[in-house]
Design a protein around this nucleic acid. Structure first.
Length: 260
DNA sequence: TCTTTATGGTGAG
DNA sequence: TCACCCTAAAGAT
């Protein structure tokens, strides 16, 4: 999106929602000055200090196309930003707003977000300190890692995968962890989210994933270490992977590698 | 043609 | 924690 739109004049902006129609003319012909992510939200900033906020929730999807070649998706087009040569199109999402730049600081979602784990606003040491902060130290890790006010950017599959890679049971709490475990958790969290970003969602050990791929396994079979693998053998110790609902979402872990 | 599930989030209790 | 919101796809009938 940044390559297609960043620094370029939006030729046209389309909104499907009637309440946003008035902004079409206010944004068309205006230069895009920034495209960025804050947690799970996407912000597209314009030179006139208006910002398009969107959140994909579980079903929204951004696609970038060359101008003219229109997609055959059966999904609902909700927003289109046409650049000089390419357009960014948002399908299915229902959370779309246009804000003034100064309203970002008080936005109900954005204003509560913790440091974004991909945006390098906090180092591994700072992350470790955050686990131990009084308002977080007593929470179960399964709940904490999904809380965007704690750290922004971790989602449900990363939660399971981070805890497995760190060797920590999802029901443990920061205040009961050894300092070395906190440090490992912080380091693994940062490292695994980056790996997932670069590899388009592979959170399994990359060597292990490569071996499995070479052995003919599908992407879904080598992508995760524990997520979606309930009952299957742990890649490390062979114990059956367990699935448990925690903080309202399914969480996967190895009971042997991640003792309580 | 239904019902359920989902890499997410809010508000009530 | 739960009910609910939202859309699309998968699963069940």
């Amino acid at each position: 999106m940044r390559r297609a739109l960043g620094g370029r004049v939006a030729q046209s902006v389309f909104f499907a929602f009637p309440r946003l129609k008035p902004y079409q003319s206010r944004l068309s012909g205006v230069r895009v000055t920034s495209v960025r992510a804050r947690g799970k939200a996407i912000l597209v900033g314009f030179e006139n200090d208006l910002v398009i906020y969107s959140h994909n929730q579980l079903y929204g999807r951004w696609r970038v196309f060359k101008n003219g070649d229109l997609p055959d998706t059966g999904r609902q087009l909700r927003l289109a930003i046409q650049g000089p040569t390419r357009s960014a199109l948002l399908y299915s999402a229902s959370e779309i707003e246009v804000l003034k730049r100064e309203a970002l600081a008080t936005h109900p979602y954005l204003s509560k977000l913790g440091p974004d784990i991909l945006n390098q606003r906090v180092g591994v040491r700072g992350l470790g300190a955050r686990f131990s902060a009084p308002e977080f130290a007593n929470r179960r890790l399964a709940s904490l890692l999904l809380d965007q006010r704690f750290i922004a950017g971790i989602g449900n599959y990363l939660r399971s995968e981070i805890l497995f890679a760190a060797g920590v049971h999802p029901e443990r709490r920061p205040r009961d962890l050894k300092p070395a475990e906190v440090a490992r958790l912080a380091s693994v969290a940062r490292g695994l989210v980056w790996q997932s970003y670069r590899s388009r969602g592979i959170t399994n050990d990359l060597h292990r994933a490569a071996r499995l791929e070479a052995a003919g396994r599908t992407r879904e079979e080598f992508r995760f270490a524990v997520f979606d693998r309930a009952g299957e053998a742990c890649f490390v110790c062979g114990a059956p992977i367990r699935r448990q609902i925690l903080a309202g979402r399914r969480c996967y872990f190895c009971p042997a590698c991640q003792p309580l």
